[in-house]
Amino acid sequence: MSDKKGSIRFSDANIVYPNGAVGMKDLNLEIRPGEFVVVVGSSGAGKSTLLRAVNGLNRLTSGTVEVDGVPVPQKDGRELRELRAGVGMIFQDFRLVKRLSVMSNVLIGRLAHVPGWRAMLNLWPAHDRDVAHKALERVGIGEKTWVKASQLSGGQQQRVGIARALAQEPAIILADEPVASLDPVTTHQIMRDLVRINRDLGITTLVNLHFLDLARQYGQRIIGLRFGELVYDGSAETVTDEDFRNIYGRDFTEDDVLDEDAV
């Protein structure tokens, strides 16, 4: 194995929710540094559960998940925070603080990198401001730095979300349905951004997607989940419609693709 950072390994991992629902079942999975992995499956198949287990937002019932060979701590505390500092996350609903400026939102990605008292008093070192601004430029909205987040369009807000993750200078980015609240044009822009960032910076990227055509178009490696179980793991180039049918457990419909011509 290379010494590059950003590997993830699930070993016999299980997650059962308090209500009895199975979120993850006997998962064994290895993701190498720098991979661009698309996770597909119908809703409730455990896509979010998988991503959120990597940064400890969801806790395992049994088994282990390791990031760069270190087990993800299964309780709150400094160790978990340190792990999360190196794992960026992008959300379907952006999760920005709408009343704050774009800059403040991106600086949230630097919280774990500066002393607590500085963060509390909003006294950011020049280096961290610089990192935040570079992250904004990388997603092409450097000129929006001081605009209030609430004044941006959906696509721009998601770019701020990506910039926030980039500001962490992470080895891994987890994108949980990043395009589900966006229109088709913006969707493709955001997906291209994610691919470009993965290629330029070598950040291991896990993206949950519902749309099959997007998965095929942008994924290198595709992972299919069904009822929390790994049912497909292969390259995006060789994935067949039959494989998708198997992952979804049914024929797919217009709802499963972004561009209807692709059916």
């Binding site: 800059m103 610089d130 000129e143 730095t145």
Partner: peptide, 8 residues
């Protein structure tokens, strides 16, 4: 360089 923070 980042754009200058607009004066409050």
């Amino acid at each position: 360089m980042p754009p200058v923070k607009p004066a409050r």
